[in-house]
């Protein structure tokens, strides 16, 4: 019983790392551009299918093809940004959120239907030779690919953090978050900053999608649920904190798995698992709107 619970928590952390990774992407885009990209989950889905395709058609290992998933999403993100989102840059914050919300819904419908046409509605997953490998520790099972995914997510988040802290471009991004006018007056081209953060967010979604494809499964309709989870985690972690957001993802994963386990023991269904994220979201909004790790002061 205790072991089963611990096992559940481990699964929670493993999926939570992917929630975190996806949410970090959404949060980066929202923080810099104030675009609420509800097609984020579909970007993630596309990353999953890119990896699935490369594996099925050319037997490219999903971990080896991660750079390809990144590049596809960088390109896809840039196309959608230039075609649609770039027109929203000059609007005031409220209008921007509304308009990008609508654009995002449009984009997500397009991508969903495209995925249906290209890959049918079937649930897919990338099954490699090592997919079933598990190592045991203290009687708890650690699936190899999921642990590898967690490590990759961790490395990417740390890399992003270093990029934002240490590089000139990263600092320009943070400056734009704080005050785009002041940033412009430093000679920063905020259109480029917006584009950069948008495609970086898309790429993070792409990696998360590929990792979901190999550790779990993908389907054309998965996007909405991932957008919602990313949104929950973004609020949970607090805007502007990359590590906070990642930890927020793990907290959501843990909460879901713990609730799922308790509900199962009590004879309830697994549906509670989906609801708990939204409950958590509301609780945070009410009691700590700046997020668990965000700071009130600007």
């Amino acid at each position: 019983m205790l072991e089963a619970f611990a096992q559940n928590l481990v699964y929670g952390v493993l999926i939570g790392a992917l929630y975190g990774l996806a949410a970090v992407g959404l949060s980066l885009v929202f923080g810099v551009t104030k675009f609420l990209n509800v097609a984020h989950g579909e970007f993630l889905m596309v990353g999953g299918y890119a990896s699935f395709w490369l594996f099925t058609l050319w037997q490219v290992d999903p971990f080896v093809s991660l750079p390809a998933a990144i590049v596809s999403l960088l390109v896809l993100g840039a196309v959608f940004y230039q075609a649609l989102f770039s027109r929203m840059v000059k609007l005031t914050e409220g209008v921007k959120i509304q308009n990008t919300l609508l654009i995002g819904f449009g984009v997500s419908l397009i991508l969903q239907n495209l995925a249906l046409k290209l890959w049918t509605a079937d649930t897919r997953s990338i099954t490699t030779a090592y997919s079933g490998q598990v190592f045991n520790f203290l009687g708890i099972r650690f699936p190899l690919v999921r642990v590898a995914s967690l490590l990759i997510a961790l490395v990417l988040v740390i890399a992003l953090q270093l990029f934002l802290r240490r590089t000139y471009t990263g600092k320009a991004l943070r400056a734009t978050v704080e005050n785009w006018e002041a940033a412009t007056l430093m000679g920063i081209d905020i259109h480029r900053v917006y584009l950069l953060s948008f495609v970086m967010g898309a790429a993070l979604a792409g990696v998360a999608g590929a990792l979901v494809g190999v550790g779990y499964s993908i389907e054309p309709g998965m996007g909405m649920s991932w957008t919602l989870k990313s949104l929950v985690v973004m609020v949970l972690g607090g805007l502007g904190s990359i590590t906070g957001t990642f930890v927020g993802g793990i907290i959501l994963g843990l909460t879901e798995s713990a609730t799922g386990f308790i509900a199962l023991m009590a004879g309830g269904g697994l549906t509670y698992k989906e609801v708990v994220g939204l409950v958590l979201f509301l609780l945070v909004l009410v009691f700590r709107p700046e997020g668990l790790f965000g700071s009130k002061e600007g």
């Binding site: 704080e178 007056l185 430093m186």
Partner: peptide, 25 residues
């Protein structure tokens, strides 16, 4: 170069980082 009303420094960054951003061009 224009200094905005109220300065509008980047409050979340260190003084040095603010100055470094000044030399962005």
């Amino acid at each position: 170069c224009q200094v905005l009303e109220g300065g509008k420094v980047f409050t979340g960054m260190s003084v040095l980082e603010n100055l470094e951003l000044g030399a962005f061009v």
